[in-house]
Design a protein around this nucleic acid. Structure first.
Lengths: 210, 210
DNA sequence: GTCTATACTACGATAGAC
DNA sequence: GTCTATCGTAGTATAGAC
């Protein structure tokens, strides 16, 4: 009963090669078991994929638990508090992305972003969607802008963080230096500063439209 | 001699399924020819992949030609001019990304970003690398910061644009409305504003470090 | 539950007709 | 240049021993 090992390998292999490209033989071999155990536990290749999606979502929910309230409630009413939570959330994300720990799991999700299957709905109804919707609500409270502007801004803030995961090969070459502790600190500070710059301007424009 | 058709299909299929996952039979069938023509023209699967990389890079170079000088020279000396060029470059990119025209070609590149093969070096020595290095130089001129900060900032600016391509499934759901002409305008204006906010703050901090 | 054995399909490469 | 035919390999699914 090492089904957890099978799921970890599946997330890696499906992420790299996709549902069609990955092979159940390869996954089973890498997990140290026979291919037919996939049929036994998950009913086949597609069942394994669905189980991997569920496993991955549960994993992300656990990782985001410390920074994301479990209920959908309790957006802080004070703009300053909302901004503080935005900074905390983005910092938690970038710190994980820079450590490059779960890059394989991200690959699975990025594939679903660009070739979405029904599985992406599962992610959006899960941890990813909860995080995104909360970020939008926080931006709205922190800046006072309309919902559409808040949504666009939330995506921009997310983008400056996400780029370190999605475009890592480019980032490594552009940076030219290894991402050590000092570099990580510099990136985190820069992102916090950019976030403040964007939200400051947004709040100012809101009070006195240009 | 419809080798161009073969390359277009190859970029799509390799992008979606990867080098291993895509099948030469499938590519040939979608291009309306026999599989053995791949052997004849490109020597095999890997040769087709290499040709697809070259084709894609040439294509990007052509698309970026209007906004990217062919030589590596001539960074404007005036900060205001540099900032203007940054805004133009980012606007050209986001406009392409939002139109969703060449999403399939981006998929190929994103796969190389997250599972880099030797092909990514080809991209970085080509149009992508030239664009990235120029953006860094422009940020440095526009803000006057050190090269490391300029590189980090360039990636942040790139990220807020790139997110609309790499996380499109998420963006669609977060936005909740279709990306029509009005929405595109709003996104472009927001990105231009964010860019100004970030560069303004950077220049200010540079003159009087906090 | 985990394994081996097997049936059937699809893969990449290649040879050769035209 | 483009096609069909074929070979050896690897894929998923399934049945059944233990």
């Amino acid at each position: 009963m090492a089904t957890s090992k099978l799921l970890d390998v599946a997330i890696r292999e499906f992420g790299q090669r996709g549902l069609d490209g990955a092979s159940t033989r390869g996954i089973a071999a890498a997990a140290g078991t026979a291919m037919s155990s996939i049929t036994y536990h998950y009913g086949g290749k597609e069942g394994l994929y669905a189980a991997a999606v569920k496993h991955l979502d549960a994993d992300m929910a656990e990782q985001l638990a410390s920074v994301l309230p479990s209920g959908s409630a309790s957006i802080p009413a004070e703009p300053a508090m909302a901004r503080q939570e935005i900074r905390l959330l983005l910092d938690r994300l970038i710190e994980r992305f820079l450590r490059d720990e779960d890059a394989e799991r991200s690959l699975f999700i990025m594939r679903e972003q660009m070739c979405p299957s029904a599985a992406f709905d599962h992610f959006y109804q899960g941890a990813i969607g909860r995080m995104a919707e909360r970020l939008v609500a926080l931006v709205q409270t922190a800046s006072g802008v309309s919902t559409t502007d808040a949504r666009i801004t939330a995506l921009a803030l997310f983008g400056q963080v996400m780029v370190w995961r999605t475009s890592r090969a480019l980032a490594d070459r552009v940076l030219g230096i290894p991402i050590d502790e000092d570099c990580t600190t510099a990136i985190r500070r820069q992102i916090a500063r950019n976030t403040d710059s964007i939200l400051d301007r947004l709040s100012a424009d809101q009070q006195e439209p240009q």
